[in-house]
Amino acid sequence: MPARRIALLRGINVGGGKKVPMAQLRELVEGLGHTAVRTYVQSGNVVFTAADPDAAAAEVGEGIERAIAAAFGFDVLVTIRTRDELAAVIAADPFAGVADHPSRYHVLFLAEAGDPRRLEELDRAAYEPERFALRGRELYLWTPEGLGRSKLAQALSERRLGVAATARNWRTVTTLLALADAAE
């Protein structure tokens, strides 16, 4: 199977703005020459086979960003991971056996590798039982009471991280891998 890619769009279809219908998003991605395009939930997750399997992730993401801006009139951050990168995110799960509720366990996909020094000043004990772990371009976040009530999630802002990010819950992460593995 050709290398599959996953596009994670940040901030669409939440609240009142940045509406992107999934059927139109699929058509837009197909219009860029990508194939076997599938979307998952309304929050902007696209699984596809890249038109150019050797294209850099940033190039693919920027192409989708430009197409969304042209079609919908607003900017959206698009973060790209390969199927194998997503599988590695799941395999590296630092909270296996602890995070027992997939909708309260999140992965923040960072646009570039995070700097662990930016997180050193956080008093982890002050946020327990919430936990986080930075692994390269992903930050794992366990919020047993939910993301909306999480003080740790508020503390882990993009400003503190120093890099743009988009979050997905564990159920979405594992479903995206299953979609990437599904026969075209």
Rank of each mutant, 00 (worst) to 15 (best):
A111D: 07
P102D: 11
T79L: 15
S157T: 08
L32H: 03
G61E: 04
R168M: 03
R171C: 11
L32F: 04
A7M: 02
F72H: 08
T174L: 04
S43T: 02
E145P: 09
G15W: 05
R118L: 05
R137G: 14
I64V: 11
L25H: 01
D181S: 12
P94R: 06
A50F: 03
G31Q: 02
W142L: 10
G73Q: 09
I64A: 11
A178K: 15
T174E: 12
G44R: 03
L141V: 04
W170M: 06
G146N: 07
G73Y: 06
A92G: 11
D93G: 07
R81W: 02
P102L: 10
P102H: 12
D75C: 00
E158V: 02
V76Q: 01
V76T: 13
A3N: 15
T39S: 09
A3R: 15
Y127D: 07
A113R: 07
L108T: 03
R171N: 15
P116T: 00
E120W: 07
D93L: 08
W142D: 11
G15N: 05
V41A: 08
Q24M: 10
G17W: 00
A55P: 03
S103A: 12
R4F: 11
R81Y: 02
A50L: 04
E112N: 09
G73M: 08
A3C: 14
L28W: 00
E62K: 13
E112K: 13
G16S: 15
I90L: 14
E65V: 08
R4E: 12
I68L: 15
E145Y: 04
L25Y: 02
D84G: 09
E121M: 10
A87Y: 07
A58M: 04
G16R: 14
G44S: 08
V163Q: 06
D181F: 03
R81F: 01
A71N: 09
L9A: 04
Y105P: 10
L119H: 05
